[in-house]
């Protein structure tokens, strides 16, 4: 199939990173779509966990919030929020964290807190939520975000959650034993941290995308790996699963009446 949008490509490429063996802490938005596409295609036995405490959840529609009733109804079990963060996340039981963010830098540090100075922000964003400890306590981290100059910036105004910090072995130096971000999936390409410097580097380009587009949409001088492949285009199954769940979700979230009144 070559008839797909960049966002669809991003979600499907992100879903392919997951397998049946993953126990995955799911961020809301793009990560949630990718994780559920994985579950509905090649990884039916994946364990999806949302920070509201729902473990092993199998939602039929994508949740709008991390605590929609759908998540609890379809979960293997549901725990309290302190238990979620203490026993399951800090306890080291979660293999993979899947995060999004407002801004990212070349070492995959994320900002979802403020644009501008913290005390006098230009834009006050929602904040970190679970991300600071998801980023340090999950075995590895995937990040999915659309590539743009506003999002992929030379310097973050605020580090909400640490990726590879200043690069190199910074995580190790801070005593972390987890891998941190191992892949960033965008709507134009896939980035991996360089094995030594940990700087995000293009390793795969989506069908129909040029190197110039990638360079032009990134806020730092982005590097390309020696070997860059083309991301396989979505299969018919992947696309139909994604479009079906998006359609079900849209219908479910619109509601049936003007409840706002």
């Amino acid at each position: 199939m070559t008839d797909f949008t960049p966002t669809e490509m991003m979600t499907i490429a992100a879903s392919r990173e997951l397998s049946n063996d993953d126990v995955c802490f799911v961020g809301i938005g793009a990560p949630s779509a990718a994780c559920n596409v994985a579950r509905l295609t090649h990884a039916p036995d994946i364990t999806l966990i949302y920070e509201s405490g729902t473990v092993g959840t199998k939602p039929d529609v994508l949740p709008l919030s991390i605590g929609d009733g759908e998540l609890c109804d379809t979960a293997l079990f549901t725990v309290s929020v302190p238990e979620m963060f203490r026993y399951w996340l800090q306890g080291g039981r979660i293999t993979t964290g899947f995060l999004g963010g407002a801004q990212i830098d070349r070492f995959a540090n994320l900002n979802t807190t403020v644009v501008g100075p913290y005390d006098h922000p230009k834009v006050r964003l929602p904040g970190g939520g679970g991300a600071p400890e998801i980023a340090s306590n999950c075995g590895r981290i995937f990040i999915t975000m659309a590539l743009s100059k506003r999002g992929f910036v030379e310097k973050l105004p605020f580090i909400t959650s640490m990726g590879h910090g200043e690069g190199g072995n910074h995580r190790e130096r801070l005593g972390m034993k987890t891998k941190g971000p191992t892949r960033v999936i965008t709507d134009l390409c896939i980035l991996d941290p360089d094995p030594e410097t940990k700087e995000l580097t293009v390793v795969s380009i989506h069908h129909g995308v040029t190197r110039d587009e990638i360079v032009g949409n990134c806020g730092w001088a982005i590097k390309f790996a020696d070997t860059v492949i083309e991301t396989p285009v979505p299969t018919e199954t992947e696309l139909s699963v994604l479009r079906d769940i998006n359609a079900r979700t849209k219908k479910a979230h619109q509601g049936t009446d003007k409840e706002a009144a």
């Binding site: 302190p82 963060f85 540090n109 600071p132 340090s136 306590n137 640490m162 910074h170």
Partner: peptide
């Protein structure tokens, strides 16, 4: 979450492996 739990447990503070590398 830890701070609420500490409050319920009548402790003055909560301990966690957290905020590593964060601002």
């Amino acid at each position: 979450a830890n701070a609420y739990e500490a409050g319920a447990a009548n402790l003055p503070f909560a301990t966690l492996r957290g905020y590593i590398g964060a601002d």
